[in-house]
Write a protein that binds this DNA or RNA. Structure first.
Lengths: 200, 200, 200, 200
DNA sequence: GATGAATGAGTGTTCATTCAT
DNA sequence: TATGAATGAACACTCATTCAT
């Protein structure tokens, strides 16, 4: 992909994730990329097409992350309980929730879910459905391995994941994403995870 | 308050909560209220003022609800464990989370938190801080009354509240709010609450 | 109708009839009317709506003219042969073909018939079908009254009307419409009519 | 001439004759020719130059046709009355009015005569002046040969040609040019010619 | 011969807002 | 109280054209 096109995408995501799609003008994007407005239309059919390209990129990354998770679940490097879920957490946190691109995309999806039904479905899929599904499998696996007794893996997944989602909302998807915010999120989330796995 | 002014507020909230503040034009609002655009400016200084009035109304309601909760906590009608938290839940759910006005405001706050820092603070205050604080007190009270042993009321509040928040996000604050969505939310939330209070 | 709206219509017709609809910008129209571009949209939904209003006005006038013609055919003031058709000609020429508004509309229709199928039908209706139909009736009437022998009124109408149409094309619907052009047209057309009625 | 250049001209005429010069973009032309917009500028100085090349081609063809007509008038193959004018008609109709290239050019000239004074003159020259002049000569010749008595060859030419022009306008220069339209035109025109020569 | 990339000027349109009535 | 009329600023987008490769 062309360098300018990449820069347009980067600038667009930056702005979209802060103000929402419709509040960002082509002018705004061009100011960052340092090109003229008409040039955007050489690279993209229209403004909507920029958003769509971002959605596709996000889906690719999210799908890739999910595959990694599935793999690390089926072939755990270290099947000792705490190491087992720690490896998994790291992928999900570092390569997804807190990855700069993904994080911005999630904010964008969160805002745009109201205007755009396709986006709403994407948000639900990648913020609720997929993570909860996967987490259920993890708890089933842990139960099969005898590490936990509780077999209601669906509710367990919810109990495990919902605080993480809340922390993400509070610290990652709101306001300016600073390193400080990331740190607060990380501390809160890992504290929860530790307590959670101690209890079960 | 003048009848027309009320209608403007109602229509504005309806639209803002669906499309977000900036995607709604004065035209759109006037189409619903059946007045001319210039008439809006008799009732409000500008578009922003409509939003602000809505924020004030919401804060009033939310504050009132919180006061009710505090009261029902300090003078429990029926201090028997299950009745105790059921009364509290009902106020929070029916008069707040699922109340039509509040629900729309929450969607609005959710969308607008990115454009508007004041809104972001409001959202955090009324969706996280206040509910979690209050819930902490509830668990402290329950602990004081001997109903539960766990004294980490902060984490308990998080464990209790975060699934409710997630359910709200999935079913109340996304897409069109139908009676069906409300019902799914209610079922999920109450199931969680029941399980939760059984476990502690 | 509002004064400004009228001026917009007048200016639009003036320009449309010279350059064609799409070659005229809202800016061009506003330069003449001395208003800002955005003001146009108070009076008209969009550019297309200006054209449509002009089409309606033209149809009204053309329909009115046709009714006048029909009346003057059914109740001839002076049933003497030359006076009979002269009265009819005058209505058609002065109130239609050479009327400033109608003339400009015909140029406009002529140009726009290629972009716009509705316009093409209008042009055909009011430049060919209606005039030829009516002229047929005139010749039928003249035959009934015994003034002419030829009963092929359709072909007569064509022979009568087609030179007039050609003259109109050459002198009225092309280039700038000056009084000189009008005069050339008038001379040519009336010469033809005189010769024509002498021959039949 | 280069193959691509020819294709550009063909595509341009196709589009110009349907929508008018200014309503056709270089993009539109390139979509048909399957080249990039910048490539056009290798073959033509600018958009206007495409139009001008088409005008030159048309003038060449029209001039050639007129020469053929003049020749067939001075050396009639078969000086018998009906054969005499039939040969002439065929050249004018088949090689000019109904020839695909010429027909499209005439539509184009018809539309563009308003924007472009040079075009207006060309239209008048090749649709009125030249045909009427030549037809006058034909009638003079017929009168000299004793086939007709009427010596007002100018008016005869007008009476002969104007219905043909009208038929052309109705069936050839409006809407989509289908084989059906062509046929209607041909039938109407030849019917007129036959009647016309019977009458004189 | 052809094209990737860019651009200045322009297009129709929307919007929040103003102000006299 | 309400509105008719107007407007400046912005918006997404199109277009003919240029130029280095």
């Amino acid at each position: 992909m062309n360098e300018t096109k990449k820069e347009i995408l980067t600038a667009s995501l930056e702005l979209f994730s802060k103000k929402g799609y419709s509040a960002v003008s082509i002018r705004d994007i061009c100011k960052i990329v340092q090109i003229k407005e008409s040039s955007v239309y050489y690279h993209f059919k229209n403004k909507q097409a920029i958003l769509e390209e971002l959605l596709i990129q996000f889906e690719d990354i999210a799908t890739g992350m999910m595959q990694q998770l599935e793999e690390s679940l089926s072939k755990p490097v270290n099947p000792e309980k705490s190491n087992f879920y720690k490896g998994i957490c790291d992928i999900f946190f570092e390569e997804y929730l807190m990855d700069d691109f993904c994080n911005k995309m999630m904010r964008l999806l969160l805002i745009e879910q109201f205007h755009n039904d396709e986006v709403r479905k994407l948000y639900d899929l990648w913020m609720f459905e997929k993570p909860l599904d996967f987490q259920s499998k993890v708890f089933s696996a842990l139960a099969d391995m005898g590490y936990i007794k509780d077999r209601d893996s669906g509710y367990l997944a919810m109990k495990y994941y919902s605080p993480i989602y809340c922390f993400a909302q509070r610290w990652l998807f709101s306001g300016t994403l600073t390193e400080e915010c990331k740190e607060i999120f990380r501390v809160n989330a890992y504290q929860h995870i530790e307590k959670f796995f101690k209890e079960i």
